[in-house]
Every structure is written in structure tokens, then in C-alpha cells.
Simulated scan of single mutants.
Amino acid sequence: MHAVVGLLLAGGISVSAAAQDCAPDRVAVQGDRGEALFRVEIADDPQERAQGLMFVERMPMMEGMLFIYERPQAPSFWMRNTLIPLDMLFIGPDGVIRHIHENAEPLDETPIPGGDGILAVLEINGGMAARLGLKVGDALRHPAFGADAALPCN
């Protein structure tokens, strides 16, 4: 994992700042309370998605993992071999959060369904979504969501 990139910002950001923030290793989440910027690792193939954050003992506050699928689907996660609590943000192809599962319990093998039509899942430290005021309907800026996203990179 990489160093902390940023915390919740007050208000919106300019187009030039948005373009600078649009990189594969960064995700911006924008909602009513402003914008949160996370440094992320990408899991975009079956092996990386299967490994996820297993065996990670600690994750810096504004970091996470972004799971990206080839096409929208109904993913289900579990916490096998995952040692830290996680919030899971399930995101549609438009970059909008459709479901949040908060504080997934470490080592629990109970399935955590994300719903239908999910293109990506952002895993962050447990409790972080509530702390930052992230909610269903907030939008993410990341190259994976393309030009038609709610918050496009361009």
C-alpha cells in the first residue's frame, strides 16, 4: 500500500484537479459532504480478485483496494483470511455507489452479496464510510468508469 493521499475536502474541485486525480491508483468519492481521495491497489483479474486483502495486517487510513470486473455482475465477497475489518462499496458501471456493507468482520466466511449490475467494489478500512459520510448515491471518479460515468475523468 502507498502513502496517504488525502482526506475529506470541503466543497467540489475544479476540472483540472479532477483530471489530475484521475489515475489508476486513485479513487475520488464525491457526495454531499465533499470529496474523499483514496490511494488504491487494483484487482482486475481473477487471481488478484481472489487474493484481495487477505493476510493484510493493517491498511493506512485513506487507502484501499478497487476490484474491477470486465462487465457488470452480482459479486459476493467473504472475509476468509482477511485480518482487518472492511467497508465494501459496491459500484455500478456509472461509478455510483449502489450498496455499502460496513464493518465486514475479519475471518468471517458468511457471503456478502453486492447486488446486481456491479462493475467495481472499493474496499476501505472498516468504519471509514460512516466516518467520511459516504453513502449510496455518491459517485466515484476513476478511469474504470469511462466517459459516461457520473464523474468522468475528462
Results as ranks from 00 to 15, higher is better:
141 R>W: 05
26 R>H: 07
50 A>G: 11
83 L>N: 04
111 P>A: 15
33 R>T: 02
7 L>M: 06
11 G>R: 12
126 G>V: 05
26 R>F: 03
114 G>T: 08
92 G>L: 10
94 D>H: 10
129 A>Q: 03
36 A>G: 07
51 Q>N: 09
71 R>G: 08
1 M>P: 15
71 R>Q: 09
51 Q>E: 14
77 F>L: 15
89 L>M: 14
144 A>R: 12
90 F>P: 04
146 G>P: 12
10 A>H: 06
130 A>W: 01
52 G>I: 00
20 Q>I: 00
153 C>Y: 10
83 L>V: 00
152 P>K: 06
75 P>M: 11
116 D>N: 09
1 M>Q: 11
144 A>P: 12
5 V>D: 01
64 G>D: 10
27 V>R: 14
129 A>V: 09
121 V>C: 07
94 D>S: 15
70 E>A: 14
27 V>W: 05
145 F>Y: 11
25 D>V: 04
120 A>R: 02
151 L>W: 15
134 L>W: 08
47 Q>S: 12
46 P>M: 12
138 D>M: 03
12 G>F: 02
96 V>E: 06
62 M>I: 00
26 R>A: 04
95 G>V: 03
74 A>C: 04
45 D>F: 07
118 I>K: 02
146 G>F: 02
44 D>N: 14
24 P>D: 11
86 L>R: 08
61 M>L: 14
59 M>V: 10
46 P>A: 15
61 M>P: 03
154 N>E: 02
105 E>H: 13
141 R>K: 03
84 I>N: 06
93 P>W: 05
56 V>M: 06
70 E>M: 05
114 G>E: 13
23 A>M: 11
5 V>Y: 13
110 T>V: 06
10 A>E: 01
58 R>Y: 13
65 M>W: 09
38 F>T: 00
85 P>S: 11
117 G>Y: 04
44 D>L: 01
92 G>P: 11
39 R>G: 14
130 A>G: 12
6 G>L: 06
34 G>A: 01
79 M>D: 07
19 A>W: 01
70 E>R: 14
146 G>N: 10
18 A>Y: 03
80 R>F: 13
133 G>C: 02
80 R>Y: 13
40 V>M: 05
116 D>C: 04
43 A>H: 08
93 P>I: 00
118 I>S: 10
106 P>M: 08
103 N>G: 08
90 F>R: 01
115 G>F: 10
8 L>R: 14
73 Q>C: 13
42 I>Q: 11
30 Q>D: 00
40 V>I: 13
18 A>E: 10
137 G>D: 04
68 I>L: 09
129 A>F: 14
32 D>C: 01
71 R>L: 11
97 I>Y: 03
23 A>R: 14
23 A>N: 01
153 C>A: 10
125 N>P: 01
45 D>W: 05
56 V>T: 14
27 V>I: 08
83 L>D: 04
112 I>N: 07
49 R>V: 02
21 D>R: 06
144 A>D: 09
5 V>M: 08
102 E>A: 13
75 P>D: 15
81 N>L: 01
20 Q>W: 12
138 D>N: 09
110 T>Q: 12
